[in-house]
Computed example of a mutant assay.
Amino acid sequence: MRMRSEFILTEPLDEAWTAAGSAGLARRLEPGGDARAVVVVAPDGRPVSCALGFVHRLLPAPAYPRGLAGRVHVVATLPAFRRRGHARRAVSGLLDQLASEGVTRFELNASQEAAPLYEGLGFASAPSMMRMTRPIDRDGPLPGPPPTPHYAETVPKFTGYACVVLTDQGGRPVQLRATYSSSHPWQFPGGTMDHGEQPLQTALRECYEETGLAVKGPLRLLASVFTPPGGSWPYGTAGWIFDGGCLTAEEIRLITLDATEHDDVRVLSMEGWKGLMPGQDFARLEAVMAARATGIAQQITWGWGDA
């Protein structure tokens, strides 16, 4: 973003616009976004050249049957590192990446100085290109700069987790003893969501990783759990608890624990669990079991205190 501001734009951007552009670009570079970038770095790790492009959709045609086009938006190289082939490497890498995703039409605007580079890569001039910039309506309110990343810093942050409730065929809850929490030792199989996961996917994955069981369900949502920030964790958490169904005695016997997370598994009546858990943990267990019995999902607020 700084190379674009300094070497591409006719008027460099101020810090607010650079930060806002960086935040927007970061989102577009995430999986599923429309941005692609290749960066050439020096031996000391400094970025010295970059090529940034965007994928956009067209109506399919024989020349672009998947209806995908790639636009090379920024190519910039630090002055001290020019004439070394870095820009060619960056653009070639970007084009290869776009082509691997099915892009067959490529576009860019080239300065007279850079035109030989792009012609050497297969681009040809297109004199039909036209451009228009609509002026701001001076009689209306002027738009301000785009939201800065500082706004994102002001809103609440939450992490997500999901777990499953398992019982034996007598309806007694199955719980695992965590090695990493002496204050909240007994827990349902579950854990923190990975990037790109949905809650149910997390619940199934975590249950398998922590017990070796592929749960049968019915996988109804039993409860959502909200936890405000507290303890050693700086963020709030949002959790989803699903019904994992009943286990046979043989399935319970076959539970295989991950020793780095849990060291015991028990099947107890509600009265048996009451003496082993902090009050709020047991209250959460009661609410979940009530939801399982009635079919009415619960909304639970849970805190980090031990009571």
Rank of each mutant, 00 (worst) to 15 (best):
D281V: 06
P62R: 09
R4Q: 12
L166I: 04
G85E: 07
A126P: 00
G32C: 09
T148R: 10
E153M: 14
T77K: 05
V40H: 02
V40W: 02
G120I: 08
F7L: 15
C246N: 03
E197F: 10
K274T: 01
G24F: 12
V165F: 01
M130W: 05
D243K: 05
L94K: 05
A16M: 03
G53R: 04
R28V: 00
L166F: 12
Q169M: 13
I252C: 11
L268T: 01
S183T: 15
L94Y: 05
R88E: 13
Q198A: 14
A19T: 02
W302A: 04
P278V: 11
P234G: 08
L200D: 03
A307G: 15
T133C: 01
I296C: 08
G120D: 05
L213V: 14
T133W: 03
L9C: 11
G45H: 10
Y235T: 13
E6K: 11
A76S: 13
G191V: 06
R83M: 02
G160L: 14
P228V: 02
E206F: 01
T148N: 07
G144P: 01
A178R: 15
G70K: 03
V265W: 02
M129W: 12
I8Q: 09
S232D: 14
A249G: 11
A51P: 08
C207P: 01
L95E: 06
V155I: 15
A291K: 05
G140T: 08
R205I: 05
M289W: 11
P135D: 13
I136D: 03
R134A: 15
V75W: 04
D263C: 09
A69H: 02
P47H: 07
E6I: 01
G24C: 00
L247W: 04
K216N: 08
T248A: 09
E30S: 14
E15V: 12
P31D: 08
L254H: 14
G305P: 00
E261L: 13
G217F: 06
L58Q: 10
R66S: 09
H184I: 03
L200R: 11
E30G: 13
L9F: 08
P143W: 06
R36S: 13
R284N: 09
M132N: 00
L276G: 03
F106H: 15
S100L: 03
T167M: 04
R88Y: 03
V75T: 13
A223L: 08
Q298C: 11
R27L: 14
P43H: 07
L52Y: 12
A259W: 01
A307H: 13
T260M: 05
A162F: 06
A63P: 00
A162Q: 05
T167K: 02
L213E: 01
V48A: 10
P234K: 06
E107D: 11
S224A: 05
G231W: 04
E107R: 12
P199D: 08
G67P: 04
I255Q: 02
T256G: 06
P228L: 11
E206I: 01
R220G: 13
E210S: 04
G230N: 09
E11H: 12
R172M: 07
